[in-house]
Computed example of a mutant assay.
Amino acid sequence: MALYVYAITGEKHPLDLDGLSGVGSEPSPVRVVAAGPLCAVVSDISEEIRPKRRDVLIHQDVQERLMSGGPVLPLQFGYTATDESAVEQALRKDADGYLATLERLRGCAEYHVRAVQDEEELLRQILRDSPEARELNERIRSGDEDPQLPLALGQLIAAQVQERQQALSSGLVDALVPFARDYTVRQASGTDLLNLSLLVADDRREEFRTAEGNLAREIGDGIEFRLSGPLPPYSFVQ
């Protein structure tokens, strides 16, 4: 029978899985497949698993239960194996790498920091701070029919937005990464200007949260911070 694989742990992990049922329409108990110094946490499945809300929450619940007992290599939602033999083979093949990563993640959790900038507030700041943008805007509003004015203003504002957001994003990263063992910056999407993942040691958790809170208060108008964590260290499993 096929297996759904949640995570990899070391053999000394307490693996408190009592009462946990797995993903799928006919959930089976979450259990362990061991190979040498490693264990894979799995459950039996008889269907293709899709990211339904219930199954995503179960996947996350298993990860959080495991995190409470020690370092864990969380797999992304949807990872499956054909059978126990395939799982055992994968554990043995990459044992050294898995063990090294588990040691690197020991005593750590992942935190996500997203920053969103209010576009209207940013536009007001640009028009306030840039004489050239302010002049173009005033000419358009006063009825100047030069067809090049809107294009020139749009290009100027777009360049200013990119420059300011890149500078702000870099400054936020520089302020937070000293509290982390590792970090990764992903491409921001939508209205986000920052999408930052940090690997933070447990003994620096409060220090990090305090610094993030202070930064959010000091950063100024028009910036919203969103902090998530502690989370399984998905971003730091290679």
Rank of each mutant, 00 (worst) to 15 (best):
E64Q: 10
V56T: 10
S85L: 08
F77M: 10
D96R: 15
L66I: 05
P74I: 04
I45P: 03
K52E: 10
V72S: 05
A100M: 08
S43Y: 04
S46H: 11
A95V: 06
R92H: 14
E48I: 13
L99D: 06
E47F: 06
D61F: 07
E64S: 05
L99V: 11
A90D: 04
S85N: 12
E47I: 02
L66R: 11
L38G: 05
C39T: 06
A40E: 04
A40M: 07
R92L: 11
D94E: 14
P51A: 15
D44W: 01
R53Q: 15
P37T: 10
L91A: 10
E84Q: 13
L57P: 02
L91T: 06
E47Y: 09
A90L: 11
L66Q: 07
S46Y: 01
Q89K: 15
Q63L: 15
G69S: 11
E48S: 15
L38Y: 02
T101H: 09
D96L: 12
L91P: 00
S85D: 14
E84C: 13
T82Y: 09
K52C: 08
A81N: 00
D44R: 14
R54Y: 00
G36F: 05
R54E: 01
D44G: 09
E84F: 08
L99I: 09
R50E: 12
L75D: 02
Q60A: 15
S43G: 06
A86H: 10
D61M: 14
G70R: 05
G70S: 09
Y79V: 15
E47T: 08
G78E: 02
L38Q: 05
V56I: 13
